[in-house]
């Protein structure tokens, strides 16, 4: 039994005639990082909404096929159980702060209060997450006064404190500068190390090469390619689906034209390995 499984999923919003998802089948394993890539409007966010159960619990429309979490159909899950099972981070840093709390500490505690966790336990868990994410300097600040990047880290902490098994992260850095992006990905990496299953929508392909285990390429509501990150991001065919490969891979292909590389690298460390080997071959 797969951890998360989509079987022949098709979906249409209540208005408009076109299906946004067309016969999608996916099987996701526990503890892996999955990156959803593809052009805007391809259906990535819709897939996220579906896995989290916002479709069909929150969005109406026509849903065909089976969407199973731990073998149980999404329609049978209670919203409360889904909230604990799966965390969801949205792209806009400004809509995720509850707007009802005076301090970052209280903001992070909000989800646990809603789950009726006892107060001493909440305080302990919030303090723990603040330490883990390095948010000590922000904890007494008003969430309204934080920068976009700080808010996004607080949002991640606010979700992670609820200790979900699955984490859905929809373009967390699209509105952030490079430094804030790096901070957010440090946190995502901590989550990966903790064995969380992560579904990540992200356009920065270098970051995907670095952090994802599997890549799912979505195009026009269908799965165009899927597989190991290395295999997909070094496959020139991905370019046909509107994906720009990592620079190292592009460089690799450029070099392939004249010389033989033993493989196409996708991350920095792979590139160093491949090119060092290539140079050594040249010298011999």
């Amino acid at each position: 039994m797969s951890y998360i499984e989509l079987k022949g999923i098709s979906y249409k919003y209540p208005v408009g005639d076109e299906k946004v998802l067309k016969d999608i089948s996916l099987s996701l394993e526990k503890g892996k990082v999955y990156a959803l890539i593809g052009a805007n409007g391809a259906g990535k966010t819709t897939i996220c909404n579906l896995i989290r159960g916002f479709i069909p619990h929150f969005f109406k429309g026509d849903l065909d096929g089976e969407m199973l979490i731990e073998g149980r159909d999404i329609r049978e899950w209670e919203m409360g159980d889904l909230a604990q099972k799966m965390g969801y981070i949205f792209q806009n840093p400004f809509t995720q702060i509850s707007g009802t709390k005076d301090t970052v500490f209280e903001e992070i505690a909000f989800g646990l209060e809603n789950l009726r966790v006892e107060v001493p336990v909440i305080k302990e868990r919030v303090a723990e997450i603040i330490k883990l994410f390095g948010l000590e300097s922000l904890q007494e600040k008003n969430p309204q006064q934080l920068s976009g990047g700080q808010r996004q880290r607080v949002s991640l902490a606010s979700i992670m404190v609820m200790d979900p098994e699955i984490l859905i992260i929809d373009e967390p850095t699209s509105q952030l500068d490079p430094q804030a992006t790096e901070e957010v990905f440090k946190i995502i990496n901590i989550m990966k190390q903790r064995g969380k299953t992560i579904i990540l929508v992200e356009h920065k392909i270098e970051l995907i090469a670095e952090y994802a285990d599997r890549v799912i390429l979505v195009e026009d509501g269908k799965v165009a390619m899927k597989g190991k990150t290395k295999d997909i991001l070094s496959d020139i065919k991905a370019m046909d689906h509107g994906i720009l490969l990592p620079q190292y891979a592009l460089l690799g292909y450029e070099m392939q034209k004249n010389d033989r590389l033993h493989e196409i690298p996708v991350t920095e460390s792979e590139a160093i390995g491949v090119f060092t080997k290539w140079m050594a071959g040249k010298e011999n």
Binding site: Y13, V15, G16, F59
Partner: peptide, 17 residues
């Protein structure tokens, strides 16, 4: 957008489709 309007209950006369 129609997609947004369709999430509310009193928008029938505003939905373009």
């Amino acid at each position: 957008s129609d997609r947004y309007l369709s999430k509310h209950n009193y928008t029938q006369s505003f939905i373009k489709s």
